[in-house]
Amino acid sequence: MGLPAGTRRRTPGLRREEVARLAYISTEYYARLEQARAPHPSREVLAQLARALRLSDAERDHLHHLAGTPPGPPPGPSREVRQSIVDLLKRLPEAAAIVLSATYEVIAWNDLAAALMEDFSALPRRDRNLLRRAFLTPNEGGRRLYGVSDADEFARSAARHLRAAAARYPNSPEVTGLVDELRAGSEEFARLWAAHDVAARPALCKTFDHPLVGPVTVSCDVLDIADRDQQVAIYTAAPGSPSEEALRLLSVIGTQRMDVPATPGT
């Protein structure tokens, strides 16, 4: 937590001087804040206190309102996935499911999603972003974005959502940096950004062109996690369909590449 190790505590929680140290303010000033004897704290001090106390976004906003200082825009999109959502993904063995941040970074996934799309655990964080994947990654054999049938529509829709995210997080270096990178690296994205395209929506039914099992047609349902500004995308195949059999095969194959000859010793 940024505090030196100390003696064992009789009661849980931080001491007054520890909160002050973590918030980079004096203990005396923090005591006056607790006792309502100090002037209204600045937005910066409140932000430091929120970080020190590890407040959620809702708790942070409440702290600002209590202090009479309206909260500013969130510092950036949340990447923390609730444990209940992580558990949900694991309980969907017959569905591929991912969690997307406000910038379309894949921040959680289950095993079947990794088998259907790619092994996200093997990628650095920046390469898990579907916008980078759609606009900046060279197509492999004419397959854009895992060979999904609505790749162009998805890319346009994701660009539209990124514009909305940029408005919600105007002070986020992550968001502004991603926009600048995409505009500089993709003429298509630059055109979409300049055109303010708001019409495109990804299809609710799409087909993945998988290199091992062939076409996999799935329904796509998206659940919003409003308090984290995240989305859960769940891909399911029709019962009894060839695509359902393909997903079952992928659940067995996992992320191993059977189309690549094994190297000696493996």
Results as ranks from 00 to 15, higher is better:
G147P: 10
R126M: 11
Q83W: 12
L63C: 09
S172K: 09
N110I: 04
V232S: 01
P74E: 04
R257W: 13
R160C: 08
M1K: 05
P4Y: 13
N139Q: 15
P39L: 07
R168M: 07
Y24V: 12
R51N: 02
D209G: 03
S26A: 05
V175I: 12
A67G: 04
R15T: 05
L14H: 02
P12W: 01
F120N: 02
N139E: 15
A134P: 03
A23S: 07
A159F: 03
R144Y: 03
D111E: 15
P211W: 11
E181T: 10
L88E: 02
F120Q: 01
L136A: 07
A200D: 07
A233Q: 03
T255D: 04
H65Y: 12
E181W: 08
Q48A: 11
R144A: 14
A203D: 12
A233Y: 12
H40E: 10
H64Y: 13
D152S: 09
R128D: 08
R60H: 15
L162C: 08
A159T: 07
Q83C: 04
D57R: 15
G240M: 06
S251M: 02
A246N: 06
Y29T: 01
D227Y: 05
A184R: 15
P71G: 03
V232C: 04
I107D: 00
A38S: 09
F208C: 01
T266M: 07
E80G: 01
L123Q: 14
D221R: 13
S78Y: 01
